[in-house]
Design a binder for these strands. Structure first.
Lengths: 294, 294
DNA sequence: CGTCATTACGGAATGCGTAATGATA
DNA sequence: TATCATTACGCATTCCGTAATGACG
């Protein structure tokens, strides 16, 4: 069967057209080189070289085989190199899930940082809600996911990637638009567009927690899942909404944003989750990258 | 260093994800298979498989290496196949020189016949005058050439590829156009556009031979090299010309052709020439093809 | 305790290098 | 006769297969 060492021998002889020089180039003596070529010719059942004791010339078949041999050798070379890079986490593909809201500001910054730090790495991105990401991580469809906490599946590990403030979204003409900042007290009378308890449980629970213990609860007039849909209702005057600060990136026409003062200034968290004991080398680099991000 | 057998072993295990089944597929026992994988991993300095005594899984590096390994194996397979085909003369490139006149009729027929008989063969064609073709064959720039005889260089061999009649080219309004055929006698008074003695020595000598011994020589009013140029002069009424029958394929406007009766009915020969002892396997097939051509 | 990957070990084959041979100008 | 590819031969290494070991359910 074909053999890399035979290919190297043939390439050397074909380029030198001289067994002695080729052997020197290969750090070996002529006799074994001679035999390697003979074996290769027997394996192929094709004469590659016309040789007398005075001259060595390529046959037509040899001329056709030489570039193929070089190509195979080059391919083997790059394959080993790339594989080492992948093993070291400096190259390859990382399949990453993300929630819609993280795409507004955080994800693009992550992609840019990744491209700068690891140019040979490709992020394969898929938008999914948190629950689907957990499934996808467990089944191996994605290597990691940017999800809303808490991550309490025993097969998963996670760490915080981002914590951002909440802001109040108001319709452009609203009386509170003029304020520099708002507190929860300012919202106690307001109609609020809220989050669906199952599909957007993280923000739903966050809101419930914020208002827990207060005398008067705000009126939740709708419950939605996606932030851009919520802003649409805000714009239509259905109510105000509490959204993560990244929502301001949307520049939603007819919607204004106002900072919200809270005891916990950055309550909206995004975590990176992955399967416990994952052997994807890229993951370690991605986590290092996340920790360095502002 | 990398090894084809290791690649085959890895491919089998990566596809089966089971050393036992992979070993069976490779017609070997598990232990050497195990070691081949270990050696491959040491050569690459990369772990390709995660294996417990209960399960075998690919690592990220292994997933990236598998398609490369398969590609290398496939390439090696096709390279051996193609090389065998080239050696057998059923594939490859044959660099063929040809004279301008042979391109009118003979060369296209040869190309078609070649394509039908040997679909994996490419003819690389170069128009050159006979003298240049001889040089090009000797220097290896072309493998063979369609040239005008005689071929008397000791390093060359040749055989006749084609013998065609001569025809008389006349301007459209010429008195002799009405004739069904002409003889040399009909031309003894005529002005003739002839061939340059050096650049077109074959046709020059042919004409000289034809009229040798006759009482009155025709008047050679011009000496050119290329047939299409000669026909241009014929059309302008400068004189008649004797050209190979293939020239009729040109459909030169304002030029008529008339058969020429000669003792030797097909005096214009085209030969295939090649370097003596050429080892180009395709050449044998091309010669066989030529002999079968009408 | 059964399955499956790995390690241990003995024998065969492969491959190197040195020395001898053969062919060619 | 000098050069250069090939054949001959001895030695070390590699690699297979059988047998033993070890890990995991």
């Amino acid at each position: 069967m074909l053999d890399f060492s035979q290919l190297r021998c043939f390439a050397a002889v074909a380029e030198e057209l001289h067994f002695g020089r080729a052997a020197a180039r290969l750090n070996m003596t002529q006799p074994p080189l001679s035999r390697q070529i003979q074996v290769l010719e027997r394996v192929l059942d094709v004469q590659l070289l016309d040789r007398t004791s005075r001259s060595v010339r390529l046959t037509a078949a040899g001329r056709s085989f030489l570039p193929e041999a070089l190509r195979i050798l080059r391919l083997a070379e790059t394959a080993t190199h790339v594989t080492r890079q992948v093993a070291a986490g400096r190259a390859g593909v990382l399949k990453l899930g993300f929630t819609a809201a993280s795409a507004y500001d955080f994800l693009p910054r992550l992609v840019i940082a990744c491209r700068n730090a690891m140019p040979d790495v490709t992020l394969s991105l898929r938008e999914m809600v948190t629950k689907d990401q957990v499934e996808a991580i467990l089944s191996g469809q994605i290597d990691a996911g940017l999800i809303r906490p808490p991550v309490n599946h025993p097969e998963l590990e996670a760490e915080r990637a981002l914590a951002e403030p909440l802001v109040v979204a108001l319709p452009a003409g609203h009386a509170l638009v003029a304020r520099h900042s708002l507190s929860l007290d300012d919202l106690h009378d307001a109609a609020l567009v809220g989050y669906a308890p199952h599909e957007a449980s993280y923000f739903h629970d966050l809101l419930v927690g914020l208002f827990a213990g207060g005398d008067r609860q705000p009126r939740i007039v709708q419950q939605l899942t996606q932030i851009h849909s919520i802003l649409g209702l805000v714009r239509a005057g259905i109510g105000l909404a509490l959204v993560p600060a990244a929502a301001e990136c949307l520049r939603f026409e007819g919607v204004a944003f106002c900072p919200l003062d809270l005891a916990q200034p950055r309550p909206a968290e995004l975590h990176l989750a992955w399967r416990r004991g994952s052997d994807v080398p890229l993951l370690a680099h991605l986590r290092a990258l996340l920790r360095e991000m502002p």
